[in-house]
Design a protein around this nucleic acid. Structure first.
Lengths: 225, 225
DNA sequence: GTCCTCAACAATCAGAATGCGCATCGAATA
DNA sequence: TATTCGATGCGCATTCTGATTGTTGAGGAC
């Protein structure tokens, strides 16, 4: 899962970025509204954290522009405490959740997780497909109840696929959502990790659709329509 | 389905081309208005993506010329951000949809799919004929509810036929719409793939009209005879 | 009118060529 | 030390080609 942070204060921004990365997200950080808007318009994000008090372009404006352009990723807005008007205006402009500064990072993580979960149409924080179960809260994966140890990248890849169960996901899409901005798109890492996930969870969890990408299907809801 | 891209910026153009190809389209790329106009006038396309800000001949002019010549394929226009006048002028000149730059490729794909679908007079993204069902969104094909595995070419061929259900489609037309510009037109690949589709979906899905081509008929709306 | 022949077209098959995806390993990184 | 990354070569599914076989319909002979 890939996240955009737009936060003008460098210290806080960096701190957020590294916290989120530790929690298994790919993170792009932008420190001003214009750049932030551009990133949100061109790159693929699964969620954004947007500070309203930005120099140059206001956060609300950025949010408004995204929505007008049809960008649908969930946005978590950061407001100064007790700024009621901001809060209301933010929700009006299309924010999905808000958090008053200062806040605890755990809370931010939890809310982001919920946003991403809801955006993918999942009610529970536990995703399942066949014998595989993935708990987005603890970041644990089990196969038939047996815990399986996945590395960070393996987890990210699997997590994205499970969030988009049944959909055909292209290699490009995977790269865009698992890695942040600066990454060499010409490599076969995706294949490598798919191979290793298959080794750990069984070859049949991930289906290859030749020429198009991969797809994770749940045998439970597969048969006749 | 075959698509023409007219985009002067080489990087973006190439990127679009490969994304679309990954999604199962045959793509021709032109980097200037004159050449683009020529291609659109002489070749057979199911849709075009046209950048308005072209050197030499303006995109609007190209579009206008196509329409005056009676070219009817749907055109998706790319405009610079917030260029209201462009947008209006584009729609006036006969554009079917527009997208402001910068945009997300997923959005472009979705809109193109919608354009092609509407152009063939289909309301839904699910095409059916007899026991065969094709979902253009997920790219899946089922026979009596059972999923059928088709290769890329097989899918393209079937998809074109299903978009033109009931119509007699010549071999030439098929070649023109599922391959791009540089392809040896003297070969019997079409026959080969028709054979293989028949093997997978039943011999009666595709009817041969000797001397003319093929036709895919839906027994449901075939009159008594 | 019936049957036969032939030419044109279509279908099928097998082998060759291509290209995609996979696995493995060594290097880089943290 | 564990993990991630990038490169290479291999294997196999897919695609294409060309040859062969099968089908259809028109025209001519009877």
């Amino acid at each position: 899962m890939r996240i955009l942070i737009v936060e003008d204060e460098p210290t806080l921004g960096q701190q957020l970025k590294s916290t989120l990365e530790q929690n298994g997200y790919a993170v792009d950080l932008s420190t001003d509204g214009e750049d932030g808007h551009f990133l949100g318009s061109t790159e693929e994000y699964d969620a954004a954290v947007l500070d309203l008090g930005l120099p140059e372009i206001d956060g609300l404006t950025v949010l408004g522009m995204w929505r007008k352009e049809g960008r649908k990723f969930p946005v978590l807005v950061l407001t100064a405490r007790d700024s009621w008007s901001d809060k209301v205006a933010g929700l009006d402009a299309g924010a999905d959740d808000y958090l008053a500064k200062p806040f605890q990072t755990e809370e931010l993580i939890a809310r982001l997780r919920a946003l991403i979960r809801r955006a993918s149409g999942n009610a529970s924080s536990e995703l399942t497909a066949g014998d595989v179960r993935l708990d987005t809260r603890s970041g644990r994966v089990t196969l038939n109840g047996e815990p399986v140890k996945l590395t960070a990248q393996e987890y990210k890849l699997l997590s994205y696929l499970m969030h988009h169960k049944g959909k055909v996901v292209s290699r490009t899409e995977l790269i865009e959502h698992i890695y942040d901005q600066d990454f060499d798109r010409d490599s076969n890492t995706i294949e490598v990790f798919v191979t290793r996930i298959r080794k750990k969870l069984g070859a049949d969890v991930i289906t290859t659709i030749r020429g198009l990408g991969y797809s994770l299907d749940d045998p439970a809801d597969a048969p006749r329509e």
